[in-house]
Simulated scan of single mutants.
Amino acid sequence: MSDKPMARLALIGLGMATKPHLEGLDELRGRVDVSGVFNRTRAKAEAVQDRFGFPVFDSLDAVAADPGTDGVIIATPPNQRAEIVAMMARAGKHVLMEKPIERTLTGAQDMVALCEAAGVTLGIVFQHRFRAGALRLRQLLAEGALGELALARAEIPWWRGQDYYEVPGRGTLARDGGGVLISQAIHVLDLMLSLTGPAQTVQALTATTRMHRMETEDFATAGIRFANGAVGSVVATTATYPGGQESIVLDGTLGTATLQGGTLSVVWRDGRTESVGESAGTGGGADPMAFPCDWHRDLIEDFARAISTGGAPAIPGREALRVHALIDAMVRSGASGAQVTVEAV
Rank of each mutant, 00 (worst) to 15 (best):
A220G: 14
Q203W: 13
L191E: 13
A236L: 05
G177E: 09
T221Q: 14
T238Y: 10
R213S: 15
G262T: 11
V180L: 09
I182P: 00
G177P: 02
I224D: 09
A222S: 15
W268K: 00
D176H: 08
R225P: 00
T240P: 00
A207S: 15
A257D: 02
T208R: 15
A239K: 01
V266A: 08
V180D: 00
A220I: 07
V266F: 04
G171T: 10
F219K: 01
V180Q: 04
E217M: 09
A239Y: 06
H187E: 06
T201S: 15
V234N: 04
T237M: 07
L189Q: 07
G244E: 13
L264A: 09
R269G: 01
Q184M: 09
Q203A: 15
T273R: 15
T196K: 09
S265P: 00
V188R: 02
G179I: 07
T258G: 02
S194C: 15
G271W: 01
W268Y: 11
P198G: 04
A239I: 12
V202P: 06
Q200M: 15
A230R: 01
I182Q: 01
L181V: 03
G271F: 01
L259R: 03
G223I: 06
T238S: 08
V249H: 01
I186S: 03
L195P: 01
L173D: 11
A220F: 07
G197D: 11
G179F: 06
E246D: 14
T209K: 05
I182T: 03
G229C: 04
A199C: 07
E215H: 06
L254K: 10
A174N: 05
F226S: 04
Y241E: 10
T206D: 05
G177C: 08
L193T: 07
P242K: 00
E217W: 12
S233K: 06
F219M: 11
V235L: 12
I224G: 09
T208V: 14
G255V: 00
A199M: 05
Y241C: 06
H212R: 13
E215N: 13
R272T: 13
V180K: 04
A174P: 02
G229F: 05
T221K: 06
T172F: 04
V266W: 00
G252S: 03
M192F: 08
R210A: 15
R225A: 12
Q260Y: 02
H212C: 15
L195C: 10
A185N: 05
H212G: 14
Q184Y: 15
L173K: 12
T263W: 03
T172P: 02
T216Y: 02
G271I: 04
A207T: 11
F219S: 03
G252M: 01
L191H: 12
L173C: 04
I224N: 12
G232S: 07
L259C: 07
Q260C: 10
Q200I: 11
L195G: 03
E246Y: 08
T263P: 01
L191Q: 09
R225D: 11
G229K: 10
S183Q: 10
V249C: 08
A236C: 13
R269L: 05
G197C: 10
T240K: 03
V202Y: 07
A236G: 04
S183C: 07
G271D: 02
L193A: 04
D270K: 05
G244W: 13
L264M: 11
T240A: 09
R175G: 13
R269T: 08
E217N: 12
T240Q: 05
M192E: 07
P242D: 05
D190A: 12
I186A: 02
T196V: 09
T196C: 10
G271S: 10
